[in-house]
């Protein structure tokens, strides 16, 4: 009777089924825990944790230099860049666009820098559905190795004011 005070001695030993269940459940929880750690060493996808503070002005100038050095074209006013494999590449989040459009080579590793120039954004890479939170003032450094050629769509999945739904971008893997 959960709404009345329990009988005087309520701290009784567990029953057989309860003991079984608690043991199995606890084991299962620890198994899930070890899965995380195991994947850190086994898997190719892990939470990126490298980041440094940077002012939005600094980041913008870095990204502008990067675009100027590697620009190969333009689509609807958005520059297309083709950086050298293995280098640092820059992606800028701002209201309401991901810029520039990145052309990457398949199975090559890059250090992707992402930061916002205004409010928080959410980087969503589709259709592989990888999602990261992007801040202003933090230069997020992500080591990426695309493993399949094709067009990847970017959109924003963190509410960034009224034009949020207009914010898209693109990564092309060749």
């Amino acid at each position: 009777m959960a709404i009345y005070p329990p009988e005087r001695i309520w701290w009784k030993p567990l029953g057989r089924e309860e003991r079984l269940w608690v043991t199995v459940a606890a084991l299962w929880c620890f198994f899930m825990f070890f899965m995380l750690i195991g994947w850190y060493f086994l898997g190719a996808q892990n939470l990126p944790t490298r980041a440094q503070r940077i002012t939005t002005a600094q980041y913008k100038s870095l990204a502008d230099q990067f675009v100027e050095a590697n620009k190969v074209g333009e689509e609807n006013g958005v520059p297309i860049v083709h950086p050298q494999p293995g280098t640092d590449i820059y992606l800028v989040a701002k209201q309401w666009q991901w810029t520039p459009i990145l052309e990457l080579e398949n199975n090559k590793t890059y250090t992707l820098h992402v930061s916002s120039l205004d409010v928080q954004h959410g980087l969503s890479i589709q259709p592989i559905n990888l999602n990261l939170q992007i801040f202003p003032g933090y230069d997020y450094m992500i080591t990426i190795t695309p493993n399949k050629a094709g067009n990847y769509s970017l959109w924003c999945n963190e509410f960034c004011s009224i034009g949020h739904h207009l914010m898209t971008g693109k990564i092309v893997v060749k």
């Binding site: 996808q45 592989i128 990426i144």
Partner: peptide
Amino acid sequence: YFGNWITLSQAWGIR
């Protein structure tokens, strides 16, 4: 849980 780990192993290398 495992269904999702399988999905993750098919995506890009990200660290």
